[in-house]
Design a protein around this nucleic acid. Sequence first.
DNA 1: CTGTTATGTTATGCTGCATAGCATTTGATG
DNA 2: CATCAAATGCTATGCAGCATAACATAACAG
Lengths: 149, 149
Amino acid sequence: MDGKKEAEKEERSGLPSPLDELLGYRLRRASMAMMADLLAALHPLELSAGEASFLILVGANPGCPQSDVGRTLEIKRANLTPLVARMKARGLVVDAPIDGRSRSLTLTEAGIALRDDALARIAAADRKVSQGLSIDERALLATLRSISG
Amino acid sequence: MDGKKEAEKEERSGLPSPLDELLGYRLRRASMAMMADLLAALHPLELSAGEASFLILVGANPGCPQSDVGRTLEIKRANLTPLVARMKARGLVVDAPIDGRSRSLTLTEAGIALRDDALARIAAADRKVSQGLSIDERALLATLRSISG
DNA sequence: CTGTTATGTTATGCTGCATAGCATTTGATG
DNA sequence: CATCAAATGCTATGCAGCATAACATAACAG
């Protein structure tokens, strides 16, 4: 299977490039394309991608320590602090001291509602793409998980 | 310096999360993981990811107009200008006027040599991942291409 | 010729991510 | 108990990537 004359290769100033065959490059481009859709879907909710993932994770783990959230989402402590502050300022999350240093996070009713809304939009954007996949989505997810270890 | 792999990054504190089942999220995480490896591989060459992709594309398309490079790599004109300037300053690429406004780009010998080096490192990093894939790489690439249009 | 589009450049701002340092608390060790 | 290393959260700060706006020139279509 090496039909090479694709003719559609240059849809519009698309120069031929070995980059097309590189997994890392293709992964990045696909990720950026989906991210663009995601941001558009979350914009009406005034949520960034990081904020949405935060709400989803805390919503699924009520009372979890902030440190665990940071580790799971791979958000540095220094960057998580202002994110939590914004969510608290909007009344989406409440925190309580676990011990002297750690704080537990829990979504408020408003936080849960917004999380549900965001999750629905994200899932819809996901579905829009995954429906057109040429391979099984489960297999794809498993493969991607294995890449990010 | 570092550039090491922190041994086995234990999944400690990995909170259960619906994000794990989201295609967009998994795509992003996989992309970021590969990008980290890529940057480490390119660091000895003092190349950023964008610069390496630039060298590869121009190397495969000698004499191509700068505008096409920008479109293909999805780099805005305003950001491409300083990138080209850096590559010229390092003697990796030369440009010549096509017409009064457009400029053609071509790699120098040094540029080709560095491109070859970079491409080898990138391909190696790619292979390190693709060898452990649970699904066919060709199918994966095709799927990713369909996602990014 | 005239208005519109394309290209390249400069200046500038925003966002996400990173590092460094600090204060506090916890837990392990002797 | 006394100490010290690690963990947690916070503040301040810098930077790289990406974006927009405005401009100058040149090509193109009418």
